[in-house]
Design a binder for these strands. Structure first.
Lengths: 200, 200
DNA sequence: ATCTTTTCTTTACAATTGTTAATGGGGCTG
DNA sequence: CAGCCCCATTAACAATTGTAAAGAAAAGAT
């Protein structure tokens, strides 16, 4: 149950068996169905989720329209970070895209871990640094790339998500409308001279 | 010389006098003229800068065009983070926009600090978390706002920079061209002056 | 299997931005 | 002080995206 979690944190720090036990005990296992909302707008969340199985997405509500901010895959820590880290009302929603198996750690238990295993500070520092760099990469794509190039890079990096996630969710993540994404897909099919897939 | 630095880190952790001394000693003071490049593309930087006075900007080179990724003000830690944190070749440039007074800490000295004052891990974790949240805010503006709204928010939050920084640098930071930003400015002036005419 | 809902694509039109080029102002330098 | 470079603005045109609506396809529910 904890194998993916250990494999993930091994990239950052080494824990001895005793520390591993303390670390594991801070988490609880939870199964959550598809389309389940873990954090609502306005709510102050005290939970951080490690994804063993499934997909989560963070999204904003813009006048009733859902704009995806991020899609979390297996092996990642997910949360409404602004709310969790600052204990402030969330400005976004966190929801499952599939049935999920999660390892949940609550803020109190994380703070307890900081006391009992201080080197967890190094772990969370490195995770925060990695998330920051990741966020910068995405932001730079908005500054440097056209929507078409952004879609192309998404396909290269997350082609599996095209099959697992509705396209209008991906479109909003790329900062475009589903209509525009459909046009881009059509252009790329024609450009690649691949066999067309719709009516003959 | 260190007063702004102490004031800044006090938001995150408390250091006793001895720790403060160790912390200060890790930095060196440096004056840098306007338009000076601190980090070049491809370079692996080992320095992190705290800005006592002046402005820095991070920018990308896109076929000879300079696209600004971030503008750092006084009281902030600035660096080409991707390069500094991962010790990888920088994909961006870091340059002064004004004559600057900087406090510089090198990677070796930071790592030494992690050993001698372990709670510095907490400080850098919180700084990374804050930078991550800040990056998320900017990213969300690309997803949720039009270029015009993004300009408007920039004016509200950083009106002083409109006077200190050339407009084409701000435009690229907002993800638009100087031409488009000029049109937006014109529209906003007219909107503020002229009352609404009539509806269709 | 049928009905219903959701999702993806297409079309036509409106609106905005990007591109290129020209103008004029401001500041810096010799 | 003149000359020059950088910068902000404006104009005209091309290209792309957004919007709204409709139909087709796929997925889910009963």
């Amino acid at each position: 149950m904890f194998s993916l979690l250990h494999k993930t944190i091994e990239q950052f720090i080494h824990l001895d068996p005793q520390e591993k036990a303390l670390f594991e005990n801070a988490f609880s296992f939870r199964e959550v169905p598809k389309k389940f909302t873990l954090v609502k707008y306005g709510q102050i969340t005290r939970e951080l989720y490690f994804i063993n199985k499934g997909l989560l997405r963070l999204y904003y509500d813009k006048n009733g329209e859902e704009i995806t901010g991020y899609i979390f895959r297996e092996g990642l820590f997910a949360s409404s970070y602004d709310s969790f880290l600052r204990q402030s009302p969330s400005i976004q929603y966190l929801e499952t895209l599939e049935n999920c198996e999660l390892l949940v750690i609550r803020l109190e238990q994380l703070e307890e871990l900081y006391r009992t295993v201080p080197k967890i500070n190094i772990l969370t520092r490195k995770i925060a640094e990695q998330r920051f760099i990741n966020s910068q990469m995405i932001l730079s794509s908005f500054l440097l790339d056209t929507p078409e190039e952004r879609y192309q890079k998404f396909v290269e990096q997350h082609s599996d998500l095209l099959l697992r996630v509705p396209h209008h969710i991906i479109a909003s993540y790329l900062g475009i409308t589903p209509v525009s994404m459909s046009r881009i897909r059509k252009r790329q099919l024609q450009g690649a001279k691949l066999p067309e897939r719709h009516k003959a």
